[in-house]
């Protein structure tokens, strides 16, 4: 896990997950209203996650 590219990727995935998790939990707890603007923030984070996942090589080269 000392590969810097992989490390950066994992870090960015965690950051985007953090956005989605924190916001959805806030909706559940009634701390924030799930307004269209807020939901867009979550959707953007999920979209970013999808893009980041595409950067992961599906197979490690042998």
């Amino acid at each position: 896990m000392s590969d810097p590219a992989a490390s950066r990727l994992v870090h960015e995935i965690r950051n985007q997950l953090a956005v989605a998790v924190a916001n959805v939990e806030a909706f559940r707890d009634g701390v924030l209203e799930p307004t269209p603007a807020r939901l867009t923030i979550v959707l953007d984070a999920l979209e970013q996650l999808e893009n980041l996942l595409r950067e992961i090589p599906s197979e490690r080269s042998s």
């Binding site: 953090a18 924190a22 916001n23 806030a26 701390v31 924030l32």
Partner: peptide, 12 residues
């Protein structure tokens, strides 16, 4: 620097 996380924490 992730505003969308920071403002949620701020509210809590």
């Amino acid at each position: 620097d992730e505003i969308a996380v920071m403002d949620v924490l701020e509210r809590y």
